[in-house]
């Protein structure tokens, strides 16, 4: 079962293990500094499909197959699948999951979806809802540009604070039956936080307050501090959102700089890949968690980390109506080993 430590903060008494994980990415992501960590890098961003939307579904589907395959499982052995993406009606996920026949919950948390899926999956399994759950997320540069910004071949200039939506997908298989490593120990569900940022080209700044709120709540509820963790990793705050996040944490009395990383900053080489403030999208944090961080925990090179996926809950329509951009961020505490640290 899960034990509540505060509003939206839980520890899992029943260990939830991450049996396997997989990550697939596009060519640009594959050419970046993290290129080696992906299970597959697709050179053609259409993934052999007719439309960009089909391409994203296909990428997510391949990632789920890979994750199941690594755990030696078939789709029949999963009790639940949790997936989400950035596209209206979560179509990238629904069409990806269509052939699997696994009970499905579609999630929307903008780029916070990977953490959201891991939290709900862990709660479901620790409550005895099943033995295995699949958590997946994806984003695709071309589908996101089409939906949120301009057509791909439109000639526009991006400001320095703009981020580049990653073509990437991550999937993890949660398991409560077979003890393995890594495992999920706790979680903190974020609050919708808005400090009035209206610039859709500065999503990092829109999300940073949500990240700071969630992490502060986590530290207070659990009585921990940055020293307790090898790493604190955010999904896609980017260069400037990450800077604001560390400043906000400092104002709360926590110096996280020594152990802080951001997947958006790690994904690309800003100098040569022209990605301005860094990568973004559900697939950014999702693919680096599944392709980079979880394997490092499995190899015992990271003992304990907080993965915090950050989402800008941006709607182009609401921004046009003059609304500001709210953010949300969720934490998942992931550790190596098979014993339960908090039990």
């Amino acid at each position: 079962m899960a034990k509540a430590l505060g509003r939206g903060v839980v520890y899992f008494d029943t260990p939830v293990f991450i049996a396997s994980s997989a990550a697939v990415a596009g060519k640009k992501e594959g050419a970046g500094p993290m290129g080696q960590c992906f299970d597959r890098v697709e050179q053609y961003s259409r993934f052999g499909q007719k439309t960009w939307e089909q391409a994203e579904s296909r990428m997510q589907q391949e990632t789920i197959w890979l994750a199941l395959d690594k755990a030696g499982l078939t789709a029949d052995s999963a009790d639940l699948i949790l997936a989400g993406d950035l596209i209206n009606q979560c179509t990238s996920s629904t069409y990806s999951i269509r052939p699997f026949g696994i009970p499905f919950l579609g999630l929307f948390g903008a780029c916070s979806t990977m953490a959201e899926s891991l939290i709900i999956g862990s709660l479901f399994l620790s409550a005895g809802g099943g033995e295995r759950a699949v958590c997946a997320t994806s984003s695709h540069f071309s589908t996101a540009e089409r939906q949120f910004r301009y057509p791909l071949s439109y000639g526009g200039q991006r400001p320095p604070t703009a981020q580049w939506t990653c073509t990437a997908s991550g999937a993890a298989v949660l398991d409560t039956v077979t003890a393995s490593s890594p495992k999920i120990e706790g979680a903190c569900i974020g609050r919708v936080t808005d400090l009035g940022i209206t610039d859709a080209n500065n999503m990092g700044a829109a999300m940073a307050p949500a990240a700071a709120d969630t992490l502060t709540r986590w530290f207070h509820a659990t009585g921990t501090s940055p020293d307790n963790y090898d790493l604190i990793v955010t999904g896609d705050l980017g260069l400037y959102g990450g800077e604001l996040f560390t400043q906000l944490m400092m104002k709360q009395g926590f110096d996280i700089k020594p152990c802080y990383r951001d997947c958006g900053v790690m994904m690309f080489d800003g100098e040569t890949q022209d990605t301005h403030a860094g990568g973004s999208g559900c697939g950014c944090g999702g693919s680096l968690l599944c392709g980079h961080f979880l394997p490092l925990i499995r190899q015992q090179r990271i003992k304990r980390m907080l993965f915090m996926a950050t989402g800008a809950l941006m709607s182009p329509m609401l921004v046009q109506q003059g609304e500001s951009i709210p953010g949300v961020a969720h934490i998942v505490e992931i550790a190596s080993g098979e014993e339960n640290y908090h039990a």
Binding site: Q157, P159, P160, T161, L195, G196, I197, N202, A205, P209, A212, Y240, E243, L244, Q247, L248, K251, Q252
Partner: peptide, 19 residues
């Protein structure tokens, strides 16, 4: 401490580079 939107606006402007 609670961060007010006015303070955060200043923080954001100080961090975010202009074109």
């Amino acid at each position: 401490m609670e961060i007010k939107p006015e303070l955060y606006k200043d923080m954001t402007e100080a961090v975010s580079p202009k074109s």
